[in-house]
Design a protein around this nucleic acid. Structure first.
Lengths: 199, 199
DNA sequence: TTGTTTAAATCAAACATTTGTTTAGTTTTG
DNA sequence: CAAAACTAAACAAATGTTTGATTTAAACAA
């Protein structure tokens, strides 16, 4: 699954052959169909594995009684950024898969994930509105699109961001930490500007 | 090229066969190689055609002497949104192609486009900073990522945004206009919050 | 400790499609 | 008539998948 993830991430599902996956995984070609049934089911297994932890994280934040709404939202932002930076391959696949309706099972899985996530987030925002710290009339879809879109775009076009800011000599790790901080404060500033009820 | 665009947009380059393109275009299979040379060159031709107008638009704004920096930036935002909403297929292809390094020619073409665009935008921001209306220390890469990422994400996952906001019964056109307005004010608000020098 | 058995794991090879591309011939057009 | 436009058919390569044989590993009995 890890080998598949790497290839799917930078050649796409249709762009990678089962032979490529088998080779980098160091296993015989037939083993993939033996264990997963098909190339498609391999990807489904990959998705099932990865998306398991996602919702859990969000629920834990929401249940926390020591954080205020804005603090929760900021934690949510940081967690999302971390998740993307830690599993860039999987997220690149997800971003791409979201925009193609090829595999029903997977689009459905993504949709389900987004539904629960947006319900939880909606609850969080409502909590903040009742507490009077969040503005009314918030378009949550746009807000989430800004989070997911901005972070996803940076992660999937790192090379360009590096070139643009002369960060070419940073190691992978250095850059990850650098961009983590930048993204975090950038998105938080946006969220605060759009949500905060202080003007 | 239009037939190719449609297919590339929702199955990906590797996911669509030359036969599919030929069929929806209503031409003989061999014609595609006859006129374009190869499947890959067909895509390159597509990119060349579409990206021709892009930079021009931006240059026209920048040269305008009647608009202030913030007004120019807002026009830029609206133009980008309009471009994406008017050619959603092409932009979905571009978004996807940006994150795969399969075709050298095309990644180079996209990179070039981004370079000139970001140089022009950088000039615009510098203009605003000198005029004192824009804050110093602006991370233009993040700002552009927010524009491109947010709009791109909404366009490529329309169906989800519709479901989330109960807009399922809108026609394609109605939704396009609806989301155009929403996106426009959302992004402008963000830009103003991050750039504006008023606090 | 032995040898035997059995099911799972692994493999190389083959299979049937699909793929992008080319060819050789036909039709159309100026 | 000649060049361009077009076509059906064929081609070679790559693809996902299956097959049938072989190896491994564990369970079991003597």
């Amino acid at each position: 699954m890890e080998a598949a993830e790497i290839h799917f991430a930078d050649r796409g599902f249709e762009g990678t052959s089962v032979r490529d996956i088998a080779e980098t995984a160091g296993v015989n070609l037939a083993m993939i169909n033996y264990y997963f049934g098909s190339k498609e089911k391999l990807m489904e297994a990959m998705f099932a594995r990865r998306s398991a932890y996602m919702t859990l994280q969000l629920e834990t934040i929401l249940a926390n009684r020591e954080m205020g709404p804005m603090e929760k939202l900021e934690t949510l932002v940081d967690q999302y950024i971390n998740r993307l930076l830690n599993q860039p391959c999987f997220h690149r696949i997800m971003i791409r898969e979201q925009m193609m309706n090829s595999n029903h099972m997977i689009t459905e899985q993504i949709l389900q994930m987004k539904r629960t996530n947006s319900n939880l987030t909606r609850a969080l925002i409502a909590e903040g509105q009742e507490a009077g710290v969040f503005r009314q009339n918030v378009d949550m879809g746009l807000l989430m699109a800004t989070l997911v879109g901005t972070v996803g775009h940076i992660v999937s076009t790192q090379h360009f961001y590096r070139e643009m800011n002369d960060l070419g000599e940073m190691t992978e790790d250095e850059f990850r930490n650098h961009i983590r901080g930048k993204l975090s404060s950038h998105i938080k500033a946006i969220f605060k500007a759009i949500l905060s009820n202080e003007d």
